[in-house]
Nucleic acid binder design. Structure first.
Lengths: 381, 381
DNA sequence: CGGTATCGTGAGACCGGTCTCAATCAGGTT
DNA sequence: AACCTGATTGAGACCGGTCTCACGATACCG
């Protein structure tokens, strides 16, 4: 029964008139609240059907105070990590009737601020943010306004808020120790984030994933009575060019192993190595964060630290929904453990390379070839 | 100045009172419309500042009729194609002050329908949809309602609407001819979409990318006086398992080249080939749609047909913004041409292949072969 | 200096729903 | 038959903005 185009939308009042009842009754029947007799209900529903009536969610939201949408603020939806996490978030919140309003910040604080403000103005019922820095002013005001907030991937020190993320430190230490055992002493770490560890005290847990990964690296060295050379950290990198030149620098600076802080960086790092004619793992060993499917297709397949990205997103979404519904007594979110998946991108350091460290005993080709037991990063098929 | 938590939000009325002016004047000053004296404006702004006033976009939207948000309905944000396109859309519409409301359909029509309805109810100012089928009822009613609509990637026959996508046929024909020249006669095409070409007449342009890609493939055969065996089309595939078994089937059915309809499929196809110990391109040539960065990292690097995905998204977003702003006389959107990027995954067909395949010369032990329990469909004796 | 165009202002309707409240109605009691 | 209870119903306020309109004040004009 579609009317001709450009028709003015029908309202409850129209439906009420058509059904011959009061606006209030029509609204009740359509909104499924309050008491309505069967007779009235069916007449109203029929009238609505006839008119092709659709409720105006804006109006509804305005006086219920619930917009049934949640804001999601990520650095970059193009990053597979965020893409997959967003999928998880979306699936979770949709189960509770919410839709996702998305905002990219390009990891810029200013963009993040305006995004959060915009979303607050649009009265989203809650917010999921992957903060690009540890600056918390704008997030604090979300809390002040009493709107639920869940952080994704990265925490903000001093902000008492649920965080859905992973704890990769165990896997990171494990990986680093294996590299050390293979003779690596100069291990480079490459990341786009800033390693800003501005905790109030060293006792606080590290909230930034990068900080905790770097700390794990250093810790592995200490466990072996060594010290990690912090000059091998390259952070705050923007753009492929600067990542590639960081690789250049590090290799020239005698790094024998490189750690890429996410798969986007990993791509560039590997490409840069290939371009320079350096072989993995003969010349340089490589560890990458995030287990993208392609990592195991390379030759050699790349050793990675996997995070259950979809689950992390899904958890963030579920928790946010719970908070919006004022469910209380929720246990704090515990981080998902990262998992080291050994493939073939670790190798012994070539003795000629460094000055002359301990001559590593002839390692058998380091193929632990642990099966990537079902190598799934997420629980979905 | 932050008040204690859970404060009721301030409204224009509050600001007006605080500034000692009428609600109307305060609203004008804050909304930046109508005539307001400098004196009043500054008093109002100051008062708003003092109270930490934030306008309620819902209320604003309700009587301007503009929600300043656009709906984006894609199959799966996790698919790099959509992730990147969404980024483009988002960047484009944000330039015009719109935010993105995102919905995943998992390529299911029912989900797509409800998503579109939901977004319409939320009064988005416009919609960008990557339709999962050629079913147009729900999209038609968007048009009926007079709300701007732009299609992404795939068209719908008979729906008079802008389409932002690419035309890969030239590149597809080119690639297929090269395969044919290399001796390939049995070329498999693998896709998750359905190849539903339900045009009213054969004269209409093909709207589904898959249909046009398959058509290009067939055309290349015809140009060479050959016929493509349509039984080598595997469409409507869901999940990695069914893709992998399609690869199995096709190889057993003597396909010597495989075309993967997107990068998600490409990953699985390549993994399946590796697992079976089949080498690219010696045993099977591979063409993939979408140029993901990892494609060139593989050994051999994969030949692909690239689409300017970000630009496609950006174009969709810009066009939608233009339509919302009632700009008229817009030229129809022309598709971006696909580009064949030749790498090293094409090779001549081995003449012996049809005979008794696996007298293959000693492959280096296929590296990972961490055969997951039981799975081995490798019936090749 | 009267007439009029312009600006600034406040009152109040309005957007399309929800929700309060008092009035009405039906059934069950005694 | 009078009384009580709970379900239905309609009128109208309300959410937080925008916008129309009428009115007073100022400015420009011949």
């Amino acid at each position: 029964m579609a009317k001709t185009a450009g028709q003015r939308e029908h309202t409850v009042a129209d439906v009420a008139r058509e059904a011959g009842v009061s606006k209030a009754q029509a609204a009740r029947a359509l909104g499924e609240y309050g008491a309505v007799s069967d007779a009235v209900r069916s007449r109203v529903v029929a009238a609505a059907e006839r008119l092709g009536y659709r409720p105006n969610q804006l109006a509804r939201s305005m006086n219920t105070g619930r917009s049934l949408s949640v804001g999601v603020v990520v650095g970059d939806i193009e990053n597979p990590y965020f893409a997959l996490a967003t999928r998880g978030i979306s699936d979770a919140v949709e189960e509770h009737g919410f839709t996702v309003v998305l905002s990219n910040t390009s990891e810029r604080l200013a963009a993040e601020r305006t995004a959060v403000e915009m979303l607050m103005d649009k009265r989203v019922d809650g917010l999921i943010v992957a903060p690009s820095t540890t600056e918390a002013g704008h997030l604090d005001s979300v809390l002040q306004a009493g709107r639920p907030l869940v952080l994704l991937d990265r925490g903000v020190p001093g902000l008492p808020v649920d965080l859905a993320g992973s704890d990769v430190s165990a896997a990171a230490v494990e990986a680093a120790e294996e590299l050390i055992a293979l003779g690596h002493r100069r291990i480079g770490y490459i990341t786009t984030s800033r390693n800003d560890d501005n905790r109030a005290s060293p006792q606080e847990p590290l909230s930034s994933p990068v900080a905790s990964r770097v700390a794990a690296l250093a810790q592995a060295f200490e466990l072996n009575g060594l010290r990690w050379d912090e000059s091998l950290l390259r952070d705050g990198l923007r753009g492929e060019a600067s990542i590639a030149s960081a690789v250049d620098d590090l290799v020239r600076d005698k790094a024998t192993a490189l750690i890429a802080s996410d798969s986007l960086i990993g791509q560039v790092v590997i490409a840069a190595l290939q371009q320079k004619g350096l072989r993995i793992p003969d010349d340089v060993s490589v560890l990458m964060y995030d287990d993208q499917p392609w990592a195991r297709l390379l030759n050699p397949p790349i050793t990675v630290i996997a995070q259950p990205t979809y689950d992390i997103g899904y958890t963030a979404g579920s928790r946010l929904a719970a908070l919006i519904q004022r469910r209380s007594g929720l246990p704090p979110l515990s981080p998902f453990p990262g998992r080291l998946i050994r493939r073939a991108s670790f190798g012994p350091v070539r003795s000629a390379h460094t000055g002359a460290p301990d001559a590593v005993e002839p390692l058998e080709p380091p193929m632990q070839l642990a099966t990537d037991a079902g190598n799934s990063t997420c629980t979905r098929d």
